[in-house]
Computed example of a mutant assay.
Amino acid sequence: MKKIIISIIGIVIIMSAFTFNANAATSVKIPVLMYHRIETNPNVNDTWQIGLNEFKQEMKYLKDNGYTTLTNDQFYNIITKKASMPVKPILLTFDGATIDFYNNAYPILKQYGFNATEYVVTDQIGTSWGSSSDTIRIMNENQLKTVANNKIELENHSTTHGHIANLSTAELTKRVSGATTKLKTLTSKPVEYFAYPFGESSNNFVNVLKSLNVKMAFKVGGGMATDSSDLMNMPRIAIVNTDNITTFTKKITTGN
């Protein structure tokens, strides 16, 4: 009887290991969404301003349809075949750390217990600019700390925004490492992921990021992320103000 039980246990262990390896070997395909501003009264002439009601509908769709919102490390481990993939994985990213994230997007994400990433331009923290009709305000340190303690990862978007891909090695190193240091000081957490300003990279930029131990960097466009995607030029799917729930569901299933 003991031999039979031991044999059964052995079979279960082998089957479990096989299942994990099979999952890890499955072709990976994950939508990475890129948002910018979530506004109660979006400017229809600004591609990057999404209405709050639309955002609520999109997040509810993800919740109702069983999507798993990943952390960056989970995403990285799945892409590099170090971990198995859940049935419906998705990575949510936001660029700019504007105040609308704190006021509008963050409460919805918190309501659903979603993971998300905010890419921060660190020299802009706590600043504001623009016109009286559209003042752009960036979250302050306390607001960033609040979201960072509630499943929102703060990652590197350089110290300054702009078309920086072709700057010198020294200048790129300064801007990337400066942002990393600032965010680590703010959150006491690792900062290992990067989003290119304007989605623009270069061979030199990639080499700088690698030298600074950045694990993965994200561009704009390119469809679904797969296990064959370039780790230093990972695709992201832009969610824009012309999207509705129909185009949203198409994007997260096809990448386009």
Rank of each mutant, 00 (worst) to 15 (best):
T242M: 01
E54G: 04
A170Y: 14
M15L: 15
P31D: 02
S211K: 11
I38M: 03
P89C: 06
H36R: 07
F198S: 09
H161T: 06
K182D: 08
S132H: 07
N43L: 10
L52Y: 10
F18S: 15
V206L: 05
T26L: 13
P42C: 08
Y76P: 01
N142T: 14
A83I: 08
S16T: 13
E155V: 07
K174T: 12
T249I: 04
K63P: 03
Y35N: 02
A17I: 15
F205Q: 01
R236V: 11
M139N: 03
G162I: 08
T26P: 00
G113Y: 06
L92A: 01
K250H: 13
N166K: 13
R137C: 09
K215H: 11
T181L: 12
Y35H: 08
T68K: 11
D243C: 03
T80N: 04
A195F: 14
N213K: 08
G178Y: 06
N23S: 11
E155K: 06
V220M: 11
M216K: 01
S177G: 06
K81Q: 11
W129L: 09
P190A: 06
A148W: 03
K250I: 12
T47M: 13
G162M: 05
N41Y: 15
Q49D: 11
V12W: 03
L92K: 02
K174M: 12
H161I: 10
V12S: 00
L231N: 04
K56F: 15
R175M: 15
I164V: 07
E200Q: 15
D73V: 13
